[in-house]
Amino acid sequence: MSGQTVVVRKRLPATCEEVFDAWLDAEGMRRWMCPGPVTSCEVTMETRVGGRFRIVMTGVGVEVVNTGEFRVLNRPSKLMFTWVSSRWNEQETLVTVELQRHEEECELVLTHERFPREHSTEQLAEGWGEILEKLGVHLVSG
């Protein structure tokens, strides 16, 4: 399904366990999650599937609040969470972080997807259509 997608790859000098744990360490995250001009960063999170997080970035005259919910927590290979930012009209987006070991390093692939607003119902209906169609094929071939 296709909305707008951003993919970022990075090889990190750590084990995938270390990288995975960094995403669930609220205290450590304050050091790497906040962009340059941010003067203070607060992170709170409930580290379980269905648990929520909140990252508040405060700069001079601006405050950006990012919140979301953990959807998948598969240590050490995959995290998935929703991402809602006050900077982008509180629209719900989805972030997937995949980790794979490469010798002494961990390769991280981050995929951030944004789904078109007005089309979402239509898209959902279409998605269901596809699922039912495939199911139909299965039923016939089975």
């Binding site: 000098p13 750590a14 270390e18 960094a22 450590g28 050091r31 982008w88």
Partner: peptide
Amino acid sequence: DAMKWMTFYTEFWNDRMEALEEHLIEKR
């Protein structure tokens, strides 16, 4: 709008991953 969003988050996540790298090195 799509271009703006994608440009913003490409830069945002690239910068965050650089910072994460530094953080992991420091931590070790």
